[in-house]
Each structure stands twice: as C-alpha cells, then as structure tokens.
Amino acid sequence: MRPRRTSTRLVLTAAALGVRAASTALPADALRLASSLYMLSSPPQLVALVTGGGAQLAPWLLATPGASNSILEFSVPYAKASLAAVLGHDPPQSVNAAVAESMAERAYERSVALGGGERSVGLGCTAALRSEPMRRGEHRCYIAVRSAAGVHCLALTLAKGARSREAEDAVVARAALATLARACGVDPPPLPGGGPFWKLAAAVLEASDDPLAPEVAARLDAEHADETFVAT
C-alpha cells in the first residue's frame, strides 16, 4: 500500500515576517473629487507626467469609475534620462516651475495628438521629497496644468522632516489633483478642519512614521501654496 501524500501550504503574513503592511485604502475625498471631474459634461482628456513625487495620484484617478472616458495616459519619467527624453532637453535642475510647465506643455501636446481636441489637458508635476539620508535642500513640488484656457500653476514648500516620505507623496498628489480640478472649473473641497484640500488631516499625519509634535504641527500650519494662472 502506497503511503498517502500530504501537502502543506505555508502562508506567511506581513505580521509574521515582522513587516508592517501598507494601507491599501484610497482616500474617499480624493476619489470623490476625481469623480466630479469625470461627471463634467465635457470631462478633461488628460495626459499626466509626474516625476519625483505625487505618483499616488495615478491609482486615485484610475480607480474611480469614469476614468476610461477621461484619462488618456499617465507616465512617470523618473530617471533623469527619461525626463530629458520627454522634455527634449536635459534641464540643469529638474525641480522648478519651468520644468513643471514644460512637462505640462508636453503632456498637453500628447493629449492633442491622442485626439483630446478642445478638451485636451496636460498635467506636469515635479517634486523633491524626503530621502534617506535626509536631503540638504527644501522638500518642495511644482505643478502645472495646461489646457486650452491657459496654464494653472502651484508651488508648494513642505515642512521639512514633518512627514514620512509616503505622507509627503500624498500631499503632492493631493496638490496635483486640486490644481487639475481648478483648471477644469471644479473647486476642490476643504478638509474637515477647514484647511486646503492638499493638506493632510492631523489623524493621517499621526499615523505616519513621524510623531506630530507641537513644533511640527506649527510648521505644518505655516505651509501655504502659491497658485497662479496665465491665460493663453
């Protein structure tokens, strides 16, 4: 009589391995704002280019019903050579307003080429965020949204060392979504506490890797974004 074979399946959870599992929940307010863009009578035909930070914007946009009627392309030219190929030149410094506007212009041209027509919209976002070891310069981002009406721009300097890298990336993604919404004529909702849409709620920050000490909270309160619009 043959011995019966048995099989054992070993399932290792993140907790068993000592690894903290990342949250997969998407922010409800970001999804609602994306949905409001898709529900417009003429939803934007968006091409987005993001580098250095803000890539969390992609799942927020793509996980919302209606994305297929609005999102044409979302690219992350992260490497220096990749960004240079997109822009057609190698910028001496990649995180500034001029680069964001050039990215938005290239994205807009791509949207037009893909058949976006008068609804073509190009988003460019470039950021320098938290790294290990801590970078010397400021943590900042520049965002530009190009449409037939003109160019909406946002510049934001983050409170250095106040957030984890993941939280900084979320702030940049929220700032990009808010700028896109304004360019499309949609007002982003304020946070429950009354702050601008791009600022993370205190509860989210407290759940990040860094404690929300009083002095850190004060620096977060001092953050502000500079927004401009230039008509074409």
Rank of each mutant, 00 (worst) to 15 (best):
Leu156Gln: 10
Arg106Ile: 02
Val76Gly: 08
Gly88Leu: 04
Glu168Ile: 02
Asp187Val: 13
Ala217Met: 07
Leu205Phe: 03
Val76Gln: 15
Lys199Asp: 04
Ala176Cys: 08
Tyr108His: 06
Val121Phe: 04
Val172Cys: 03
Leu49His: 07
Ser35Ile: 11
Ala104Val: 01
Gln45Leu: 11
Ala15Gln: 01
Ala48Val: 03
Ala84Lys: 09
Ala144Glu: 14
Leu83Tyr: 06
Gly137Tyr: 07
Ser131Phe: 04
Leu220Met: 10
Arg165Glu: 09
Gly18Gln: 01
Cys141Thr: 14
Ser147Tyr: 04
Ser82Leu: 11
Arg136Trp: 00
Ala183Thr: 01
Ala148Gln: 15
Ala30Met: 11
Leu212Cys: 14
Ala203Trp: 08
Ala222Gly: 08
Ser70Met: 07
Met134Cys: 04
Glu101Asn: 06
Gly195Pro: 02
Leu72Lys: 12
Val47Glu: 03
Ala162Tyr: 05
Ser94Phe: 13
Leu191Pro: 01
Gln45Trp: 07
Leu61Gln: 15
Ala202Glu: 10
Leu10Thr: 15
Ala85Phe: 04
Arg136Lys: 14
Ala202Pro: 02
Ser42Met: 08
Gly122Tyr: 02
Leu72Gln: 14
Ala159Thr: 05
Arg174Leu: 06
Lys160Met: 14
Arg119Gln: 15
Val47Leu: 05
Asp29Arg: 06
Leu87Phe: 07
Ala202Cys: 06
Gln45Cys: 13
Arg4Ala: 11
His89Asn: 10
His139Leu: 09
Ala144Thr: 10
Lys80Arg: 06
Gln45Gly: 01
